[in-house]
Amino acid sequence: MDERDGFEDRLRQARAREGLDRRPDGHGQLPQGPWGIGLRAGVEVVSALVVGIGLGFLLDRWLGTWPWLFLVFFVLGSVAGVLNVYRLFNPRSRPGVK
């Protein structure tokens, strides 16, 4: 009896693993602790700012419009940073949910 129940369980797991059934969500998550989330949010904001500032600076050097594009891209970079943090908690699409 026990062995047969165990077999059904294992069969279901194996089918899910090979993609034969719809699989439940929640496997392979990013670290969810407070430190993990906090550091990730910080890195996301800073990297968006870096890209924004860098783009603005380079475009200004190219077009000779210092400092106007720099200022515009600084603001855009900040917005992108906030967007990145928003995406951290509300991803555009979740694996498994189409």
């Binding site: 800073v46 990297s47 968006a48 890209v51 783009l55 992108a80």
Partner: peptide
């Protein structure tokens, strides 16, 4: 005009955040 640059910067920032982390 606002959303597209922001999304492009957000997409580019993946490179930076991935490496800096």
């Amino acid at each position: 005009p606002i959303i597209i640059p922001v999304e492009v910067i957000s997409y580019l920032s993946r490179m930076v955040s991935l490496s800096v982390r």
